[in-house]
Amino acid sequence: MEHALDITLTVNGTPVSRRVEARQHLVDFLREELGLTGSHVGCEHGVCGACTVRVDGEIVRGCLMLAVQANGCKVDTIEGLSDSKEVGELQRAFHERNSLQCGFCTPGMLMAARDLQLKNPAASREQIRAHLSGNYCRCTGYQAIVDAIEEVLHGKS
């Protein structure tokens, strides 16, 4: 394998070591090498947000970061946040309000929503919309997503 490097990182709390091509994106690494297919590939140029994952506490585009750049990092994906129940309240609200249709954008959307919940739990409806502006949803028209996040942040129902 040309231009391959050894990396070690923590994914959803589990240490993993692999030899990866230097050009491999983080999201391709997660999907192809680790079988974590919950992070989706929607555009591969950093616009749609379907591949959003969390690296050392910050949400990033998995298609704009290389796997080798995650060497030594702590990476969280939707599978990990689901099992730890960290996004359980958001998932419940999304489910009850049907804040997803095809579900392709949903893992990335939940990642962005959780990020807002951690950083600005008092966010207004406009701030919620602004925070989601990097996550593309073609099915819902966004309103139910905004409603669900608002409910979780402010306890509205």
């Binding site: 974590l36 297919t37 919950g38 992070s39 989706h40 994906t77 939707i78 599978e79 689901s82 998932q91 999304f94 489910h95 009850e96 049907n98 997803l100 095809c102 579900g103 392709f104 949903t106 893992p107 939940l110």
Partner: peptide, 15 residues
């Protein structure tokens, strides 16, 4: 609510 939405919410669908 749609029962089949739960797998999608956990990234455990099958595209």
């Amino acid at each position: 609510p749609r029962p089949n939405a739960k797998r999608l919410l956990q990234g455990r669908g099958a595209f």
